[in-house]
Amino acid sequence: MGATFDFSFVFQYFIKLLPTIQLTLLIVASAIAIGLVVGFLVALPQMYNIPVLRRVSQVYISFFRGTPILIQLFLFYYGLPEMLKLIAVDAARWPALYFVILTYGLHSGAFMSEMIRAAVASVDRGQVEAAYAVGMTGPQAFVRIVLPQAFATALPVFSNLIIASLKDTSLAFSVGVMELTGKASTLAVVSRHLIEAYISLAAIYFIVSFVLERLLRLLEQRVQKRGLASL
């Protein structure tokens, strides 16, 4: 099969893969940013029990939670340009990265909305009533009382979602985006040092998640008590 195992390649590939971390992190960051916005919008009709929109958001969540992200990626990458053709938009030449970011954003949006809904529900109703009783408006009570506490509750889940989506990005290669996994696979196939390439790849994913995890843990500890005020 491959060439004889040679440890020096592990180090060599590691260095070669480093610059690609940027692209992987770009996908993660954009997906999380889109996910937060979408997740909030999707959580709203559930929290405020808005009749029709509530149904729509439930369908959205079931779809993105209930199907593999790889399939979602294919559906968007191959399906969306066809759909856009119908309204005379030519998406055939759009970079695959756009579709990847869109898919991952919508995917994490489904999970984010569940996170937001649960976190907001965890702030007891009594505090909202107290906020009304001191004369706050609904938005004031939400921003000043509910949100900071919900944020603290959501943070551990949020950390998990970030780490999970970091690893999900390895599937972007299947539509031809040259992120970490794509780059490593190419190196592996060209040089036939497969194991070495995948060891370097695993090491890089591990280090990036480890650093992210640590950073998020620090943030968690700060926010635990004081909510947003500590940021």
Binding site: G126, A130, A131, A133, M136, P148, Q149, G227
Partner: peptide
């Protein structure tokens, strides 16, 4: 103003901030 059976203090704020909140915000 209301005093609740379960106190309903804002749990992410200190005693002082709880009392100040309505004055400053409202």
């Amino acid at each position: 103003a209301m005093v609740f059976q379960q106190y309903n203090l804002f749990r992410h704020k200190t005693a002082l901030e709880n009392v100040m909140e309505g004055l400053v915000v409202v």
